[in-house]
């Protein structure tokens, strides 16, 4: 299990527990966190769970697949620390992770 903090674009912050193996997109949807849409259900196929991973956590959130890279490349507000939350699975390693959300999901 990991405590994950989701920070909306307006600064509103919510911290929830996400069970091991559950994606951080699912973690947001299950806890009713707005600002993460998850339209494709977790296939890196839509870029509506776009998040910015806090500095220093990049090594622990895993690598970016070719599809995720392609989808992020077409997303609004792409940054070096952009990820699709559906491609990051919760584990003890990620306990305390902070995810910032873009202005909108598109």
């Amino acid at each position: 299990m990991a405590k994950i903090t989701y920070v909306a674009h307006d600064g509103a912050s919510t911290t929830v527990d996400v069970a091991d193996g559950v994606s951080l997109m699912e973690g947001a949807l299950q806890n009713g966190i707005s600002g993460i849409d998850g339209d494709c259900g977790g296939n890196a196929a839509c870029a509506t769970c776009h998040v910015y991973v806090a500095e220093g956590w990049g090594d622990r959130t895993g690598s970016i697949s070719e599809l995720e890279e392609a989808m992020l490349d077409l997303a609004d507000g792409r940054q070096a620390n952009s990820r699709l939350a559906c491609q990051i699975k919760a584990s003890a390693d990620l306990d305390g992770l902070v995810l910032n959300m873009p202005e909108t999901q598109h």
Binding site: D39, C40, M71
Partner: peptide, 20 residues
């Protein structure tokens, strides 16, 4: 529940650009 999870906009790189 989870009404957003439909495929009318397609998925992948050609997904509808005007969906929102």
């Amino acid at each position: 529940p989870r009404a957003r999870q439909h495929m009318s906009f397609g998925f992948g790189i050609h997904r509808c650009v005007g969906n929102r």
